[in-house]
Simulated assay, not measured.
Amino acid sequence: MKKKILFIMPSLQAGGAEKCLVNLLNEFDYNNYDVDLLLLNKTGIFLKLLPQQVKIITLQDDFAIFSKNILSSFFSFLLKGKFSLAYSRIAFTYKNRSIKNSGFAEQYSWKDLKKAIPTIDNNYDVAIGFLEKTSIYLTVDKVVAKQKIGFVNNDYKMLNLDSKFDEPYFSKLDYLFTVSESCEEVLRDSFPSLTSKIKMMYNILSEKAIQNLANEKNDELDKGINLVTLGRLSHQKGFDIAIKSCAILKQKGIDFKWYILGEGEDRKALEQLIIENDVAGNFILLGIKENPYPYINNATIYVQPSRFEGKSLAIDEAKILHKPILVSNFPSAKDQITHLESGIIVPLDAESIAVGIENLIEDSELRAKLVSNLKMHHYGTESEINKLYQLIDN
Score class of each variant (00 low, 15 high):
Leu6Trp: 13
Ile8Ala: 02
Gln13Met: 14
Ala14Phe: 14
Ala14Cys: 10
Lys19Val: 13
Glu27Ser: 13
Tyr30Gln: 07
Val35Pro: 03
Asp36Ile: 07
Leu39Asn: 04
Leu40Asn: 09
Gly44Asn: 06
Gln53Glu: 15
Ile56Phe: 03
Ile56Asp: 09
Ile57Val: 12
Ile57Asp: 07
Leu59Gly: 12
Ala64Trp: 12
Asn69Val: 07
Leu71Trp: 13
Leu71Gly: 09
Phe77Tyr: 13
Lys82Thr: 02
Leu85Glu: 14
Ser88Leu: 05
Lys95Trp: 05
Arg97Phe: 11
Lys100Ala: 11
Glu106Trp: 11
Ser109Gly: 01
Ala127Gly: 02
Ala127Glu: 02
Gly129Met: 04
Phe130Lys: 01
Lys133Asn: 15
Lys133Val: 10
Thr134Gln: 09
Thr139Gln: 01
Val140Ala: 01
Lys146Ile: 07
Phe165Ile: 08
Asp166Glu: 14
Asp166Arg: 01
Leu173Asn: 04
Asp174Glu: 10
Pro192Asp: 14
Glu207Phe: 07
Ile210Asp: 01
Asn212Pro: 06
Asn212Met: 04
Asn218Ile: 11
Asn218Val: 03
Gly224Asn: 15
Asn226Thr: 06
Leu227Gly: 03
Leu230His: 05
Gly231His: 08
Arg232Glu: 04
Ser234Gly: 05
Ser245Cys: 11
Ile248Asn: 10
Gly253Arg: 01
Ile254Glu: 14
Lys257Glu: 11
Tyr259Ala: 02
Gly264Phe: 02
Glu265Lys: 08
Asp266Leu: 03
Arg267Glu: 12
Leu270Phe: 06
Glu271Ser: 03
Ile274Asp: 01
Ile275Cys: 06
Asn277Val: 00
Ile288Leu: 02
Asn291Trp: 07
Tyr302Gln: 03
Ser312Gly: 01
Ala314Cys: 04
Glu317Lys: 00
Val327Tyr: 00
Val327Glu: 08
Pro331Ser: 04
Lys334Ser: 15
Gln336Pro: 00
Ser342Asn: 02
Ile344Pro: 12
Ser352Lys: 03
Glu358Met: 15
Ser364Lys: 12
Arg367Val: 10
Ala368Cys: 11
Leu370Val: 07
Lys375Ala: 10
Thr381Leu: 09
Thr381Gly: 11
Gln390Gly: 13
